[in-house]
Design a protein around this nucleic acid. Sequence first.
DNA 1: GGTATGCAGGAAATCGATTACCGGCACGCT
DNA 2: AGCGTGCCGGTAATCGATTTCCTGCATACC
Lengths: 331, 331
Amino acid sequence: MATISDVAALAGVSTATVSRALNGKSTVDPVLAERVARAVEQLGYTPNGLARSLRRRETAVLALIISDVENPFFTAIARGVEDTAQAAGYSVMLCNSDENTAKERRYVEVAAQERLAGVIMSPTTGDSDVRPLLAHRTPIVTIDRRLGSADCDAVLVDSRAAAREAVEHLAAQGYRRIGCIAGPPGITTADERLDGYRDGLRAAGRRYAAKLVRRCEFREAGGREAAAQLLAGPDRPDALLVSSSTMAVGVLQAMAELGLRSGRDVGIVSFDEAPWATLISPALTVVAQPAHAMGQLAARLLLARIGDRGERPAATTTLAARLVVRGSSTR
Amino acid sequence: MATISDVAALAGVSTATVSRALNGKSTVDPVLAERVARAVEQLGYTPNGLARSLRRRETAVLALIISDVENPFFTAIARGVEDTAQAAGYSVMLCNSDENTAKERRYVEVAAQERLAGVIMSPTTGDSDVRPLLAHRTPIVTIDRRLGSADCDAVLVDSRAAAREAVEHLAAQGYRRIGCIAGPPGITTADERLDGYRDGLRAAGRRYAAKLVRRCEFREAGGREAAAQLLAGPDRPDALLVSSSTMAVGVLQAMAELGLRSGRDVGIVSFDEAPWATLISPALTVVAQPAHAMGQLAARLLLARIGDRGERPAATTTLAARLVVRGSSTR
DNA sequence: GGTATGCAGGAAATCGATTACCGGCACGCT
DNA sequence: AGCGTGCCGGTAATCGATTTCCTGCATACC
């Protein structure tokens, strides 16, 4: 492979001049610049990004650490991040932590080692270990979930209020035994949605009953099992608040197997908008989160931090979710 | 940040010894190794991956260039790639080309500049420009689509045969005017599925009619518009082969608006399995592609190429798709 | 004409690791 | 005892760029 020295030799100038010509930092005699350009062309020279980053002590790559690349909510975030990062000349390394603390930890280490410019993450637990990043003063923005172990910018959704609103809606529709399928303990959104669920019950004058609640992974299989258990029992819930669209798929499958129809038999509200929400019958009522906007915002915040190296205090931005009422939550 | 020299100084040894101790390449006196370990611990030292990669002339990062992170087919691929890459100690840089030649080109350049270990891509066009990668002898594996402009490993699905089978199935079910919603010209899978559609018509003794075919982007909006056009006309198709699940969402929306029921009014077969396929009524007949396995295989092939630097000739692996018949294609 | 000023471009240091090479020491063999 | 062998670890070269520092030349001003 051609190096900058090869280019310099062919153009009959020093490497310093080649570098200056290519980066346009300082003025270079047009004649020399032209010779350099020709040499670059002729050799098919591509600058070595590693050498550049090493010297400059900076890279143009961000990491995005999420827990499930197959979850549309996270891919919408990824899309938002990628869009704004790309527009600013940054690339994105997408890391799938799989809700696994060890994998997450490994990615945090990689991000630190590769001296990535910044990290956007939705932490697996509130106290995920990000010390390697802190040691390098790598900016971090958390998205969707909080991080208790470090003080950094966060882009969140007011899950608690949204869950409460959803439950109040179900109660207003006349559902009496409202259950909840929540995510695993320790994940901040899972806990907050459960809190919101209780808020909603209280506001509607209903009593909280542990047997109407199940906690499981944010996955189809988890939702399916949880719903099967809840709906098979003798005094089954007549409505469910489901914490993600991936779970909702499982819940709806379980209902189909039991011959239960959403809306009429069991009112359903699920977090996350989904493309298929209006294709099923009745259509699915959802708590729509602004995932794409969250990704864009997180990326903008991160880029700002990368830019100003400054000591602005960490800020938390909380966006509102929107309850979209459809047939699955009305009788 | 602590560097290897700091560690060396604190441990009272040379940087060479620190490097050897950390990489275990050659034997180091256990006493010194212990001192090094302690110094590393004390300083919170993280090796600089850039410096290492520069010197070793290799990185442990792969690029995955796909056209739509929000398309479940591609995320399933991404998942497969990530799983096997991660198991082999590699990280994955996910690049969203958005079916945009310029963005794709930019990512190819970044991959070349950053000296990534290898690239897995589903090219936007058959003649996407990958010269920067070839110049560095960076291994490439294409996935889902072929690349005409370079000779490299490919992991494909026999789209043509699958499309043919789908059309024959529709014909066997008694559908008479079978239409097709195909992807944009130039994308190899789009063209192949259209070819397979014609094969199927021929095998079933039907005549090909251009007015039963629409080509559009692999997106919801494209499918919706195409379906609206096809189904609004006077002699509308009574069945459709749809080239992706993202398009299918749009198609089904258009049908709902027109008051058409799938199966009874219009037989539908769509490419790509989807979690919601069985939630709608009637359930959606699909051509299931082994996306996750494709990703795993592509990653394995790429890692093998990275390993043996050798000149094995490029190989194309073609996997079969599976027609999963459900209610949307039976009367 | 002499000195100050500015600017372009080259030589060499630098980023932070890995590794080729070499010196020194211990051990074994004759 | 003398010499060869092997191992351990230090010195310094190296990866390929950027950037500092400095030299030399041209222009300007007194």
